[in-house]
Write a protein that binds this DNA or RNA. Structure first.
Lengths: 386, 386
DNA sequence: CTTAGTTTGTCTATCCAATAAACAAAGTCG
DNA sequence: CGACTTTGTTTATTGGATAGACAAACTAAG
């Protein structure tokens, strides 16, 4: 009914989180440094650090430099006290990764999908997860969770409501996987996962507010506000690919007209390239690289429309950064200039001052790493409540 | 440097807030009921309630009904222990209100503005505030703060950076007013204030996530997420009036092209109505009321474009409600049907399920009441930190 | 080498908020 | 009237944070 009430256990959880976060950010660190940075009393820090050591989350790694007194005992987070699984479930591939608790990759596995029917795909998915689990070294917490990024709409029960390109409807993915593996499972949209991946491990490190624009066959977007994924009222949001940028433009399968993704996605590019005799992105990229004028113009068209939509996003969210990801980010050399100019011309000056226009650093790994991060974040969140 | 650390004072503040909020929501309430609803121990509640009584925030109002035992002592919030000032600074008017701590209006004052130069306007503004302050009854906390909604961009220091219709630039409004009155001052955009006003006192009561669309000469928007105003990375955001809905449409003074407000605002309406011999909204409303076909068509055009932009908003934020406010809400009878149809046709089905399309209930008072609410919220926030 | 001063991390006594349990006061109902 | 309920306070206890004392470990100046 009401908010969780405050008691001493809450204080301890909060302060433990502060100590752990200090170590995560600034390791190696001594107890004295943690005390100074956090404002917590030395005695408090000592006690909490001892708890963390007892829980196998932190260890002492020997003496550090002295500045004229007793040498400090340096502490570090034990990233290998647990492992996370991150999955990027694509339309024709499954990418999976096993990472430690700091997102360092331990094992990786990719497989192509021939069918898109749920049953064989789920079978392959489970095989992939099982193999990754088998590769995890022995450790205190084992596998702490499974995160999955999917190309579709997910509700807050982790059911995949609708995935147009897979032609799936109402697949209770979270329940299926947690029944199978008896582990915490987090499911989210591919763009949300990508946003988190880039925020944590890619181009958006240390940037608290960003928008990730996943430009593939369609356009998906993920919103990170204050380092947290933003979800709308009913748990799914950010369908900015279906913002109408041409009020009476091409009809979209979503029912709207003139959706952004009808003009700035890979699909839009391929459609306008068909008369020139191209039918995939790779050949277009090759043609652009060899300097074909008509193809370069096509990319500039995409760049402009991407810029139009991004200017809209900047005006609405005023983020610190916008990150272009997914397949179209490969076209960076041929779209970046037009894109940047368009955004500069169209976005409001006050918002432009601080916004950075970036391209994904993790490439095809954005969503997979973000999925792993969801699992890791879930583990830390559980630490706080138990 | 780091997060605020947890100590016992924090617990007490949190639990005091829980108790106070229970009383605010459910008054009249007994100590026993608060204990049961909040999960706090009876003794804890007793102690915290005593503190609140000592601070003149709560009072006992006598015995309540018994259900077979000792009669409970009922408690209520003392709304009149403090008063707030809310100001709506418009382009050609100043509206001011004095409310108690629950937003009940005690005094109200409107004045027309002839000039728009800063000096005379500020003078009139100060006179308005002073007169309202003079009307406040004696009470424990006096005037707890001044909130002001302004037609322009505000930074997080409360400076009015740019107000196109007033032709103001860089007016440090917050500093001026707090110097003058020695009171806490909150400045925000008119649309943000309106959003808060409708969320708290108007059509959006109890709706945690909503978007308020202020349709006047331009279009402004205010975003309430989880009952709090959302601000972007640099403190100002939500310029959805400048989302481009016609990628290569009419150039806007903001530098962008095809901005929503070029097609769906009062300005857009007046422009298309000029050939018919109209030059203000009032005469158009009158003509529509008398059934003039060509005018009705104009309103339908506005309704359609409003719907196009609102569908975009619904797709992006998936709010619980969208509230149309400001002057154009008077045109409700002639735009609502078209607007509703357009949104239904264009927004994504999953998002539509839960969204309500509402019109402002407070009319021209939205922003003013929201401004008062900003001052009240500031008072409660200070209670928690001191 | 000696000695003074510094830094680290632990220990001790104390404070304070929440809590359970006991309790007195004030009621209902048969 | 007596058994039972409900309310709100009192009392003793718990547990986490804290200040300050302290021992250990170190640097550097003389």
């Amino acid at each position: 009914m009401s908010a969780p009430t405050g008691d001493q256990a809450l204080i301890k959880r909060m302060n433990t989180a502060i100590v752990l976060e200090s170590i995560l950010r600034g390791a190696p660190l001594s107890r004295a440094q943690i005390s100074e940075r956090s404002g917590l009393n030395k005695a408090t820090v000592s006690s909490l650090v001892q708890d963390l050591i007892d829980s196998s989350l932190v260890r002492e790694i020997g003496r550090g430099q002295s500045s004229g007194g007793r040498k400090p005992v340096m502490l570090e987070f034990i990233a290998t006290s647990g492992y996370a699984i991150g999955i990027d479930l694509g339309v024709n591939y499954i990418r999976g990764v096993l990472t430690d608790l700091q997102g360092a990759i331990v094992a990786e596995r990719t497989s192509a999908l021939r069918h898109s029917k749920p049953e064989p795909v789920l079978e392959e998915l489970c095989r992939c997860i099982a193999e990754l689990i088998a590769e995890a070294p022995k450790c205190a917490y084992g596998i702490v969770g499974i995160g999955v990024g999917v190309p579709g709409l997910v509700d807050d029960n982790g059911s995949l409501l609708f995935a147009p390109n897979l032609k799936w409807r109402d697949v209770p993915l979270k329940r299926l996987l947690s029944d199978q593996f008896c582990l915490p499972v987090t499911i989210d949209n591919e763009a949300n996962a990508g946003a988190l991946g880039e925020q944590k491990y890619g181009a958006g490190r240390q940037i608290p507010n960003l928008v990730y624009v996943s430009v593939g066959m369609g356009i998906g977007t993920g919103l990170v506000l204050n380092k947290l994924l933003y979800k709308g009222a009913s748990g799914f949001s950010g369908e900015m690919g279906h913002i109408s940028v041409e009020a009476h433009g091409k009809p979209c399968s979503c029912g709207n007209q003139g959706c952004w993704e009808m003009y700035a996605s890979e699909l839009a590019l391929l459609e306008s390239a068909r008369p020139l005799g191209f039918d995939d992105l790779e050949s277009l990229l090759a043609a652009a690289a060899s300097g074909r004028e008509d193809v370069l113009e096509l990319f500039q068209g995409i760049g402009e429309y991407l810029g139009i939509g991004i200017a809209n996003i900047v005006n609405v969210f005023n983020p610190d950064a916008v990150i272009i990801g997914n397949r179209m980010s490969q076209a960076r050399p041929w779209i970046e200039e037009t894109l940047r100019q368009t955004v500069i011309r169209r976005a409001l000056g006050f918002h432009l001052r601080n916004v950075h226009l970036l391209f994904a650093e993790l490439g095809e790994r954005s969503a997979m790493m973000g999925a792993a991060e969801m699992a890791i974040a879930g583990f830390f969140a559980r630490l706080k409540t138990v």
